[in-house]
Amino acid sequence: MPLKGKLALVTGSGRGIGRAIALNLASQGADIIVNFFRRREAAEKTAKDIEAMGVKTQLIRANVGDPAKIDEMFNEISTKFGYLDILISNAASGVARSILDVDVKAWEWTMDINARALLLCAQRASKLMEGRDGKIVSISSLGSSFVWPTYAVVGVSKATLEALTRYLAIELAPKGICVNAVSASAVETEALKFYIKEQLIPDTRQATPAGRMVTPEDVANVVAFLCSEEAFMIRGQTIIVDGGTSIDLSVPAKREETL
């Protein structure tokens, strides 16, 4: 139980990748704060599954796109626990539109939740991590470096998140805090099913060089490694978990074959 006695906050951990990360860290002994916003039932289920592993869990509802709600969440963590060891900045949202149709409302909504939340959560979390060898991992996506139709504003927000991760890694290093990001290609989640059904991104599920889709558990395994002492010398990096998709130039051709 390498994480026994550690406390982790996983934003957006009711479903998908966040849930898999929360369960993985709990399986290693960490107590987990399950943050959610819109889906209470899903978050309650995650918390129940974590409790069954014999660790402590706390549900906190907060929209991480709202600075006041982030403050309230961290005030609650400060009061109830007074410390934090791991922050996983995973909660994400976005608007699927052509870049020409991205208005100020869509831009701010997406940037506030996907990028600014990491900044504000890291600022508050770093204070709670003093003297505790803290770990911060943000969750990005390949849309930060590559282009999917209608993914523009989310992709830009993820690029911001990755840049923020690098700055945080250097500025927080003297405090003993390791900061990194994990970037995934299309991961088998509800969000992906929506994107494919609406034909907003191509269905590459059959074209992954590794022979299968990336699962939330694949992402969680890498996040867990970055939260371990073995990853101590990795700083400010974005680790790609995509089964080789992004570097295989024959993936588009393979995709055509499957259509």
């Binding site: 889906r39 509802r61 409302k105 909504w109």
Partner: peptide, 24 residues
């Protein structure tokens, strides 16, 4: 209304009445 309008409307109403309206 698009999906962003809907979620923002839900959130604004939640705050105005101090209640929670989960997506479920």
């Amino acid at each position: 209304a698009d999906s962003l309008d809907i979620v923002q409307a839900l959130v604004a109403v939640e705050e105005a009445f101090d209640i929670e309206i989960p997506d479920e």
